[in-house]
């Protein structure tokens, strides 16, 4: 349970709180208006100047003495903003968390508001030039995205029922994409993405610049040393460089500090050596999101 669970979880994990998916909540925060403005300008997010700074060369800017610290504080404040006057073109209050396939499917099956659509991943298009319809959106966001034809997949059925969306998530997860759930803006939840590093804007800011746009999952991976046969299949699945094979001991080792608990590596394991355990049950990882 991260800080957002305590704020918005109503006694559980934030993304398991049915209230945060409701249309009534979205209306209360004027989300439709926000989302419309945000998605009109999504691809200009990183080149747009915010208080004189854009993201060009962000790594160098954040390493500058004093100024770097100020930028970090301001940007994190914007990412997690719950203020009334949030700016949609800089995606204030838009952040998420990595989650395993089971949790993502539970959301689609039981909590997500209709209509459910899939659309082209914006990050992959603007950073890699690839059109990949892997983002599952629901509720008021679906209605907003439908107006923007450039996000809508061509020649395929993009309006999904719950079963189809669950199946789509399964396929994407098995391919190696990481499931993540998003506030947009906090506390309204309306998207489950299947992310890939380094293109994903959220994971980019988290992995490279340690900005909390994406929180680590509620789990970490546990390797059963007796079951691991050293086939290395799982290593190729990990997007966070958390898994590595050691020839000397003929098995895979994990760097738990890098593990996001996405569980994608499990799809590659044929020997039942990889299991997710709650992050809170691992003393060194508890509370580290």
């Amino acid at each position: 349970m991260c800080e957002w669970c305590f704020k918005h979880g109503d006694g559980g994990k934030w993304y398991n709180n049915a209230r945060l998916y409701r249309n009534e909540l979205a209306d209360e925060y004027n989300c439709s208006e926000y989302l419309e403005e945000q998605w009109k300008n999504m691809e200009t997010l990183f080149i747009r100047k915010i208080m004189g700074f854009n993201s060009i060369g962000l790594g160098y800017k954040m390493k500058m003495p004093i100024i770097g610290k100020v930028i970090r504080k301001v940007v994190e404040g914007q990412i997690h903003s719950e203020k009334k006057n949030r700016n949609p073109v800089r995606a204030d209050g838009h952040f998420g968390q990595v989650l395993p396939l089971e949790d993502a499917q539970h959301i689609i099956g039981n909590l997500a508001a209709e209509p459910i659509i899939k659309n082209y991943c914006v990050c992959r298009w603007m950073q890699r030039g690839v059109k990949d319809a892997v983002c599952i959106n629901f509720g008021q966001l679906s209605e907003v995205i439908e107006k923007h034809t450039r996000y809508i997949p061509e020649g395929v059925k993009y309006k999904l029922d719950r079963e189809e969306a669950i199946q789509a998530l399964q396929e994407q997860n098995e391919k190696g994409y990481i499931a993540s759930v998003w506030f947009q803006p906090v506390p309204y939840i309306n998207a489950i993405c299947s992310c890939e590093t380094p293109e994903c804007g959220g994971l980019r800011l988290r992995n490279d610049f340690d900005l909390r746009t994406v929180y680590k999952g509620e789990y970490v991976i546990d390797i059963d040393i007796d079951n691991c046969q050293g086939c290395k299949s799982c290593v190729s699945m990990c997007q966070f460089n958390a898994l590595r094979y050691l020839p000397s001991i003929k098995r895979v080792i994990v760097d738990l500090d890098k593990c996001f608990g996405c569980g994608v590596c499990r799809h590659a394991c044929k020997h039942d050596a990889l299991n997710l355990v709650p992050r809170e049950d691992v003393p060194g990882q508890a509370g580290k999101y």
């Binding site: 080149i47 790594g59 923007h148 034809t149 490279d208």
Partner: peptide, 16 residues
């Protein structure tokens, strides 16, 4: 803005 026509490519993550 719903369907922009003019696109550009810029380097962003220079430090990477």
């Amino acid at each position: 803005p719903h369907n922009p026509e003019i696109w550009r490519i810029d380097p962003i993550w220079l430090s990477k």
